[in-house]
Amino acid sequence: MVEVLLLLAVAAFLAGLAGSYLGIGGGIFLIPFMTLALQIDIKVAIATSLIGVIATSSGAASVYVRDHLTNLRLAMFLEVATTLGAIAGAVVGILVPNVYLFLTFGVVVLYAAASMVRVAETAKDRAYRGGDEERPLVKRLNLSSVYFDQEDQGVYRYRVERPGAGFGVSAAAGVFSGLLGVGGGFIKVPAMNILMRVPMKAAVATSNFMIGVTAAASAFIYYSQGLVNPQLAAMVIVGAFTGTNLGTRLLVRSKAANVRFLFSIFLAGLGIAMAARALGLFGGVL
């Protein structure tokens, strides 16, 4: 048992590091690791992973919120869609066969990966585009924001675009969150960055804040049903806490282009895994 706890702490450290750097919860790594490598029951693994997602999110979000990287208004706006999507996820999971869902999301995720590699994000891209008229919804909700980038010591004001499309994609992220017990950051980050033109670091920070809120709602249900193993959860919390401390330091110092490149590699791998699962290859690794 001690070996299992130590291995889990190391895995949670790596998930926390990757999660805080890429704006994801890390559940996408933790669940397969716990079920396949540690032979932990899937329901216990999902419950423990949700605690890990919360630990990663809270650890990272605290730093990003303090440094004003997180766009709180945008997070609250999109969180409404994600929560509705998570509720719909249960219904969709019953009505639509998983094969179509995985195939669709596999293609979408691969497209997002290609877009992130193809379109570079420079300081000029991040700068305020004063010529365009702000969308009424963006203006009314005051979604556009400003952040300080340590990469080039610049202060960037950015305008949020396509709020409707971002809302829709966030709902889709919620559907996946409800289906798989993951945070859905792998959908939210590209949605904010590509669709809504939110700078990469701000998208990562905002996603990190959101996934914790989504996961906390589900985690309490699992906790009340006695599915959370406190030993496993404790190791995940300690491991993720250490990992996020390192990940947040790395992100604020990193070049946005590098973060985008690493994220696109992660997305490409995930897209292939989803498509493979839909086509019945490799026995389903997700």
Partner: peptide, 13 residues
Amino acid sequence: LNLGVLVRSETAR
């Protein structure tokens, strides 16, 4: 241990 886990999840909420 349970209290630690609960504090963690409830803080996020």
